Amino acid sequence: MAAGGDHGSPDSYRSPLASRYASPEMCFVFSDRYKFRTWRQLWLWLAEAEQTLGLPITDEQIQEMKSNLENIDFKMAAEEEKRLRHDVMAHVHTFGHCCPKAAGIIHLGATSCYVGDNTDLIILRNALDLLLPKLARVISRLADFAKERASLPTLGFTHFQPAQLTTVGKRCCLWIQDLCMDLQNLKRVRDDLRFRGVKGTTGTQASFLQLFEGDDHKVEQLDKMVTEKAGFKRAFIITGQTYTRKVDIEVLSVLASLGASVHKICTDIRLLANLKEMEEPFEKQQIGSSAMPYKRNPMRSERCCSLARHLMTLVMDPLQTASVQWFERTLDDSANRRICLAEAFLTADTILNTLQNISEGLVVYPKVIERRIRQELPFMATENIIMAMVKAGGSRQDCHEKIRVLSQQAASVVKQEGGDNDLIERIQVDAYFSPIHSQLDHLLDPSSFTGRASQQVQRFLEEEVYPLLKPYESVMKVKAELCL
C-alpha cells in the first residue's frame, strides 16, 4: 500500500493539533497551500530580480507567473513527485505547466533550498508574528487579574506546605514575570531571523556568478533584492546548502521555554482548584465526569500541561538535527523538520489560546482563602504575639514557653481530632496574655502579614508589564474561544 493518505478522510490519521486544537490561522501558515504558494512567490521574486539585473526574462513571463501564483494543481504535483521522487522539481514542473512561456526560467540558477529553506524562514517569521500578540493578550488578562487582587491576602506555599502570606495578585505576578520573559525572547528570536537568500547549491553562489558572467556586484544585488522582497532586513552571508540548523534550535528553545512557563502556571491553577481557592472557567453544560456528576475538573489547565510537556520535548529534535548536518548538509534534517517545526508552533498556539481562555474567566473564592488563612495564621502570628507581650512588660522566655504549650495543644486538636485551630481562643482565655487581649485582632490582621506584596504588584505592572504590552494595544480586544 502506498504511503500517505487522504487526510480529510475519517479513515486516515490526522494530527489532533490540526484537527482538534490549533487555530485556523496557525494551521494555514503550515498548510501545503501556504507552503507551495510561497515557493511560487519566491520563484517570481527571483525572476523579477534577475530581470532587473539584466537576464533575458520578459515582462510577459513575469506576468504569467504572477497570474498563476494561486493556480496550484495539487493532484498534478503529487503525481509528479511520485514520478520524480523530488518535491521541488515536482512543483517546478507543475508551475511550468500553467506558465508555459515562463517554464524555462522558473528556478533559474537556484537549488531546492532556495524555495525550501527560504519558505521555512518566512513561515517561522509569520508563525512567530501570530504567537506574539496571543502571548501579549494572556499577559494582559493576567495583569488585569493581578491588579484587581493585588491586596487580597492568601496563604503562600513553599514545598506545598503553608508559608508566609502573600497576595493573590502577587502570586499571579510570578506567572506574568515568566511570560514577559517569554514574550521578550519570542520577539528577540523573531527579529534575529535572517533570510537564507540566493546562495546556490553549497552556499557559494557559483551558479549565479556564472549567470551574471562573473559580476560579483550583481550577485550581491540579486541576494539583497530577493531578501528585501521577502520582507527581511538581512540575509546570511555564510550558508551551506541550507541555512544553519542552529536557527531551528533557537526558535524551538524559546517555544519550549514558553511551554515550561505555561505548565507551571496551569499546575498552580490545578492545585488551587483542589484547594477550592480558584477555578478555571466551567461552562453551564460542561460535564466533569461521566460517573461523578459533582466533579469540576480543571480540564483546560490539564490540557495545557499535557501539550506543554510535548512542546518542551520537541527542542531535542533540532538539537540532534543540527549535530548531524555533515559538511554542507545531509538530508537527516528533512523529514524531522517537516514534523517538529509545525508541531512546535501548533502546540504553542494551542496552549496560548487555551491559557487566554482560562485567564479571561478565572474565578476566585475569597471566603475559602480566608478560612485557610484562619487555619494557619495563628501559628504564624506567634512571633508577633511574643513581641507584643514583651512590649507590655512580659518575659520573652516565659511567653515563648506559654505559646509553645498552647500551640501544641491547638495542633493536637487540628491533627488528632480534625478540629479547627483554636490557638487564639486559648490565648484569649489565658490570664497571662490579658495585657494584649485587646491587640489580638490587630495582630491577626492578614494584611499585616503580606509585606509589600501589593506595592510590588503595582510597581511591576507599571514599570515592566504595561510598557512591554504597549506595541500590542491594537490587538488586545480579541477574545479566545474554545470549541473543545
Rank of each mutant, 00 (worst) to 15 (best):
R303V: 02
Q397M: 05
V315D: 03
K199E: 01
Q210R: 14
R338N: 01
A342W: 08
F145P: 00
T267Y: 04
F236I: 10
A143E: 04
H310A: 10
R37A: 15
E250S: 14
A453V: 06
K75N: 13
V364P: 08
D223A: 06
A291F: 03
I351L: 14
I265F: 15
D215E: 11
C173I: 03
L319Q: 00
V363G: 03
D73F: 09
L469T: 14
S438V: 11
L255A: 11
Q325M: 12
L222C: 09
V478T: 13
E213K: 15
E376K: 05
L484W: 15
I385Y: 12
A18Y: 10
R137M: 15
I339T: 14
L108K: 01
R149Q: 12
Q210W: 05
E81Y: 00
G393K: 04
F449T: 02
T94E: 14
I57K: 01
S31P: 00
R33N: 08
R300M: 10
I249A: 11
L42R: 02
R296F: 07
E25D: 13
I106S: 01
R14V: 11
R303W: 00
S290C: 02
F195S: 03
P56Y: 14
M181W: 08
L46V: 04
I369F: 05
V413N: 11
R309Q: 01
G54R: 07
P298R: 02
G96S: 09
V29N: 10
V414N: 07
E473W: 11
T158N: 03
R396A: 06
L69M: 11
L406F: 08
R404T: 05
S151P: 10
H97R: 13
F157V: 00
G8R: 15
P366A: 06
E463K: 12
R194K: 13
C399V: 11
L314Q: 13
G54P: 01
I57E: 00
N384L: 10
L377P: 03
T204R: 00
F232N: 02
M278Q: 02
R190S: 11
F433A: 05
N336F: 02
M476D: 15
V29I: 13
T450S: 03
V88A: 09
K276L: 08
V251S: 08
S257G: 09
G109T: 01
Q428R: 11
L142T: 08
L362G: 04
L362T: 09
N357A: 11
A90S: 09
A480G: 15
S261C: 03
A3T: 13
I122T: 06
E79A: 08
A308P: 02
V457R: 05
Q241K: 02
F36M: 07
H86A: 01
D398S: 11
E383Y: 06
P471H: 15
